[in-house]
Design a protein around this nucleic acid. Structure first.
Ligand SMILES: [Mn+2]
Ligand SMILES: [Mn+2]
Ligand SMILES: [Zn+2]
Ligand SMILES: [Zn+2]
Lengths: 137, 137
DNA sequence: AATCAACTGCAATGGAAGTGCATTTTTAGC
DNA sequence: GCTAAAAATGCACTTCCATTGCAGTTGATT
């Protein structure tokens, strides 16, 4: 169990109050969040700072972007040991069309996808849309 | 072999000069197009008209949207007999990170995706990013 | 030809992503 | 501790795309 400080330092991310708060916010969420979600949670902070903070997190490899088809990019913390940067982010994402939440299904890996001759696959984005467990019960 | 007029009428889309031209434009393209692509091809027409035309095509089920992750929605004609509206659009899409083109791989079907208990899958969006056949040769 | 509905064009809006620059905070060297 | 440099933050502004309201035009129907 590492502290947040240790996680950030291990990725060469300098520690600031803002970053600790945003990291904690992301860690507490079980769903992917939009920039607006973060904005609403930290009304005193400027949107640009929040934007650049998650961007830094993403660049350093502790957050990954999710395009779930809503047109609004969402963000989620990477799992321990994840390396989205190097190879494709292997897990799939679920987007609930009822509650609009998007969830990382981190242990549902994306199957190998065949592409025609001449095509070279480098990355795969797989989003399943439907009804989540909470909305279907 | 149906004429464009017959296709449109069979889907309850009224025939106008604009719609015939746009349909023909889409049919000639082997890749998915953005609204700007259409705009550039029809500079005399208003962007709104083009927008609403593809939207009508989409609502009536002869065009499907593609979200390839670039943030710009693309459009492509549905194949004959396709029914994206009813069930999931089964084929996958390939987005070339070199030439920025997005292609329907209509005979590459999306494999069955397992989701956890309680989740109900209704639709799947699968985009493969990489290098297309023309750019890799 | 008249009428009504659908289509088109123009203008404006809104949302989200991104950038330039000034200010503040943090770090590091002395 | 003090100072200079570097990094982070806040504010203003821009750009790009999607979308809508409304007025004018076109097309279908009688
Ligand atoms: Mn994820
Ligand atoms: Mn397609
Ligand atoms: Zn839900
Ligand atoms: Zn290409």
């Amino acid at each position: 169990m590492n502290t947040i400080e240790e996680v950030l330092e291990s990725k060469d991310i300098r520690i600031t109050a803002m970053r600790l708060l945003i990291y904690k916010f992301l860690a507490e969420k079980e769903v992917a969040v939009t920039l607006s979600d973060i904005e609403n949670a930290f009304e005193k902070a400027d949107r640009t700072t929040l934007y650049r903070t998650v961007k830094t997190f993403e660049d350093k490899g502790i957050v990954h972007q999710i395009d779930d088809g809503t047109g609004i990019t969402k963000y989620a913390l990477c799992e321990k040991g994840c390396n989205c940067e190097i190879e494709t982010d292997l897990h799939l994402h679920f987007h609930c069309i009822n509650c609009n939440k998007t969830i990382c299904l981190t242990d549902h890996k994306i199957p190998q996808i065949k592409v025609p001759d001449g095509f070279v696959s480098e990355n795969v984005n797989l989003v399943v849309k439907g009804i989540c467990d909470k909305c279907s019960s």
